[in-house]
Design a protein around this nucleic acid. Structure first.
Length: 659
RNA sequence: GCCAAGGUAGCUCAGUUGGUCAGAGCGGGCGUUUCAUACGCGCUAGGUCGGCGGUUCAACUCCGCCCCUUGGCACCA
């Protein structure tokens, strides 16, 4: 017996649970359940990340306290996971005292090791945003705030820095000695090349807002969100002290977007706090992103799907099965409703549900409706039992390798063999011939295999597993620490056990029903709105945060914009910049303006010529190098990579004022 | 543009170190059984294994170039 400690990221409460976070959480639940049924002493941690400027702002807008907002926003997460059969052991919130206390403890350890130093964080600060921006995020060349469109100020504030640079070599050595620390392997390459390219010390405290964990002995500072958030995996198992046995985590399951924090910063923090290499987390597994019906999910497209609604429509076990079977960990995948229905009918209904339902009713032909005793086995039985051993072992290898998709492949290969077995053994023939001994043997072996299957699928489909067991006359799966329930041999010796009633496990979903279910989700079926939009870049600051609240500007702010109608008179691609077009635009001025626009992926130079476009004419020039300068900016409506020019319906002269 | 991973049957994908590796599942087609949720079982895909060269007795599997896709970085007002 060993411990198995697995985590989801703590979810930022600026959003609600969606399919992506549900996928992550379900994946951790599946892995943890697998280890539980193997007899491991498991710990499954999830939680919420509740600090930061964004939260402070939203609370302010709503006129409630930060804590009240955090409480209300964390609740949907706590509520959602149990409805998805995710049995977490602990739910940590970064606002809890137990977390703050131990993060501060970690901070002190890092500080005492000499890896934190007080420096000055110098950066471009927007007073309106109360936030820093990097030059990359600002509009050049005058460092204009992307939200307020006002020049930002160069501000210096005291800030603690973490000596990340000091750990560059040790990290690289650690990766080399622990290549499975980052999975899938291609992600390890990315991480290593990033570290090799050089690590800068990072600023890990702020004084510009208060909603965070105070820095020990210097309460003017609150900790940078990642220094606050990452240690949750550690702080959650500090108290009571018995929980400390779970350290180090076996797996941190994360989306690929936050891999860097988990694979670089997190181990570096721990190293600084005095953790030895073998006390570091064992693995950070980066999974891919999901599209829904082939489209990226976005609020503007209104195709976001609520995981709980999916579970209500199709059954949570079906959804869990689909996520684990159809989408390979580590790769991006598509959640397709039609594929879900397809797999539900053919794999769950036909192969699994119907198998049980074609065996159990035949037990009615026995003298008593009980699990019969095995008689003499033929080659048919020994072959099936051998297959059960083989696939059970294969499934465990796959689960051990964090590949539930392959585990399910193995399990369903067994189900295929079992269906073949029923055909060949033909229990109905034995029944007609009155050979009750043979009939009993066939049914006994088949039901024993089904009992094994109920364990094999339990990690993925705990509810269905227990339903199968109920029909088999068994109690639910109850993992016991130290007891490996994984079937190596079909269970025998239970002859005479009363059987349960046969009931379809997965009622068939026909076209009509499918349409009803899809409609009940209240989303399009993919054919809906026009184009595949794209997700917004996460790091890029926008005027709109994830709650949909926009920053308001005054009319005076707006009036500062000089928007003009322009006509494109020349356009060409920019060598070496595949997204850029260099334009000459007639704004009714003596000379055409030179503009550079990032639209080359959508518009060719040819089709741009003659287009009437909206131009911000008083935008400060921005250099692009090689003498290329943009004297303004054209406007496009944009959703991810999809963009379209803003133009006019009626032909007005170049230079017409837009207001 | 740079780095990485890939482009295999209609679809989703398996294919160690070159020679039964041209495969599975699903869909489709044909046949068949009747225990079962019209479910099961059997048969069926003549696919240039992205393209072009090269190495070799022999390449999907090695090398080079090209095309395309997907990630990461850069770049995007």
């Amino acid at each position: 017996m060993s411990t198995f400690y697995a985590t989801t990221p703590i979810y930022y409460i600026n959003d609600v649970p969606h399919l992506g976070t549900a996928y992550t959480t379900i994946a951790v639940d599946v892995l943890t359940r697998y280890h539980r049924v193997r007899g491991d002493d498991t710990r499954f941690l999830t939680g919420t990340d509740e600090h930061g400027l964004k939260i402070e702002r939203v609370a302010q807008e709503r006129g409630i306290t930060n804590a009240a907002f955090a409480d209300s926003a964390a609740q949907p997460f706590k509520d959602a996971w149990p409805m998805l059969s995710c049995a977490f052991d602990d739910f940590i919130r970064t606002t809890e005292p137990r977390h703050q206390k131990h993060v501060q403890e970690l901070w002190r350890k890092v500080r005492d090791a000499g890896d934190l130093y007080l420096g000055a964080y110098e950066g471009w600060y927007c007073v309106g945003c109360e936030a820093y921006y990097t030059e990359k995020e600002l509009e050049q060349p005058d460092n204009v705030c992307p939200v307020h469109k006002k020049p930002v100020e160069r501000v210096k504030e005291p800030s603690y820095f973490f000596r990340l640079n000091k750990y560059q070599e040790r990290l690289l050595k650690f990766y080399e000695e622990h290549p499975s620390f980052v999975a899938p392997p291609s992600r390890l390459n990315e991480v290593m090349s990033f570290v090799r390219s050089g690590l800068d010390d990072i600023s890990v405290s702020r004084t510009t807002f208060q909603w965070g964990i105070p820095v020990p002995d210097d309460p003017q500072h609150v900790m940078w969100v990642w220094f606050d958030a990452l240690p949750n995996y550690w702080s959650a198992i500090q108290e009571p002290p018995e929980l400390r046995k779970y350290w180090p985590p076996n797996i941190h399951f994360v989306g690929k977007d936050i891999l860097r924090f988990h694979a670089i910063y997190w181990p570096a923090f721990l190293m600084a706090a005095g953790f030895s290499d073998d006390q570091l987390p064992k693995q950070v597994f980066a999974h891919g992103f999901l599209t829904f019906n082939g489209q990226k999910m976005s609020k503007s497209l209104r195709n976001t799907v609520k995981p709980v609604a999916l579970a209500d429509a199709f059954g949570i076990d079906s959804v869990r099965y689909y996520l684990m079977r159809a989408i390979a960990f580590g790769q991006d995948g598509d959640f397709s409703l039609s594929d879900l229905v397809q797999r539900y009918n053919s794999e769950l209904g036909n192969a699994l549900g119907n198998l049980l339902n074609r065996v159990l009713p035949q037990c009615r032909k026995l003298p008593e409706y009980k699990l019969p005793a095995r008689g003499e086995l033929t080659e048919l039985e020994t072959n099936l039992l051998a297959e059960a051993r083989t696939q059970s072992a294969a499934a465990s290898v796959a689960f051990d390798a964090v590949a539930p998709q392959r585990a399910l492949d193995a399990i369903f290969a067994l189900l295929g063999t079992a269906n073949q077995y029923i055909d060949r053994a033909a229990p109905w023939t034995a029944a007609k011939q009155g050979d009750l001994a043979r009939l009993g043997t066939i049914l006994a072996v088949a039901l024993e295999v089904m009992e094994s299957v109920s364990i094999l699928i339990w990690p993925v489909m705990p509810g269905i597993a227990d339903q199968i067991r109920e029909q088999l006359g068994l109690g639910p799966v109850v993992p016991v620490i130290g007891k490996d329930l994984w079937p190596t041999e079909a269970a025998t010796g239970n002859a005479g056990r009363a059987l349960g009633d046969a009931k379809p496990l997965f009622p068939r979903i026909d076209k009509e029903r499918e349409a009803q279910l899809v409609a009940s989700l209240g989303i399009g079926d993919g054919a809906a709105p026009p184009a595949p939009p794209a997700q917004a870049k996460e790091a890029a600051p926008t005027a709109q945060d994830a709650t949909g609240a926009t920053t308001q500007i005054t009319y005076d702010d707006f009036a500062k914009l000089d928007l003009r109608l322009g006509v494109v008179i020349a356009a060409e691609k920019v060598k070496g910049k595949d997204k850029l077009l260099s334009l000459k635009v007639d704004l009714g001025e003596p000379e055409p303006r030179g503009l550079v626009a990032g639209i080359a992926l959508t518009y060719t130079p040819e089709e741009m010529i003659g287009k009437r476009i909206m131009v911000v004419s008083n935008l400060a020039p921005r250099k692009f190098g090689k003498g290329l300068v943009s004297n303004g900016m054209l406007l496009c409506a944009k959703d991810g990579d999809k963009l379209t020019l803003m133009t006019s319906l009626v032909e007005l002269p170049p230079g017409s004022k837009i207001s």
